[in-house]
Amino acid sequence: MNEGVCRMKWFALRPVLAAAAGLVLLLGLLPRLAPELRAARPQAPASTPDLTGIWSPPRTPKGFLPYNFSPEAPPPMQLWAAKRCELVGCGTGPLGRANDDNMDPYLTSCAPYGIPRLMNHVGPFEILQGKNRVLMLFETGNAMRQIWMDGRGHPEDLDPSWMGHAIGHWEGATLVVDTIGLTDKSWLDTAGHPHSDALHVVERIRRVDHDTLENTLTFDDPKTYTKPWTSTIIYKLRPDWSLKEDIACEDKILMDLKAKKAKVYPFQPYPMNFPVEAIPLPDVANAK
């Protein structure tokens, strides 16, 4: 190999190198010039606000945020609702929970939290934005909420459900979600406020800053409340979190499976681990 050949080769390659460098530069700049070309993830178009991420209420010195959609004063309740709230002890338990948690459908019967209770709970939820839907995946009970964004309305004569029927649209940077069709078996919140199947929830969800989501909920339920009322909840972005499995009443399930072990798991080749003891609720109500 002599020097002349090397120099010649270098000269010959120069246009190729220049072209390669140009290509690298172009590829590097392209995403900045055209953000839509970066759309590797199935997200909403760049023109709609991005609410995606995992969110949960912040912790305060006293614990998690309130559990109670009406922490300052009782909401404007109809007589029956006020009576039930008095019996439950709405918001008078620790951290704004109901005082008598034996009346909580989740704690007594493994009932789903449902909407709107899930929107005011310690468990994180993830927002995913698709073309025609915004999805909310809740860790608590691993529940899923779909918000239709394709302009459809609510169906006639909805079957009551725990998550309800939700339709949404954008008003500027705010996601407006309209939910009806909610079962009256769920609690409105962990404070124990009741609601009927006439409950109509309107949520206005917006990103206050990069790490903060604000949800202002309006509850309109004339069977339960004398007038519509609102509540504002804050969620913080949890960039390092991922949603985990959360099985309601797993302890009760394991006890039940343990009792049916021989029937459910025949030919099991290795010993199965089950909790040794069920820990039933103590009779606190009758304790002095």
């Binding site: 620790p94 948690d101 609720l281 103590p282």
Partner: peptide, 13 residues
């Protein structure tokens, strides 16, 4: 201490 949580088995326990 006011950080009672264990509501499943009754905070009043």
């Amino acid at each position: 201490v006011s950080t009672a949580v264990f509501a499943h088995h009754g905070a009043s326990r």
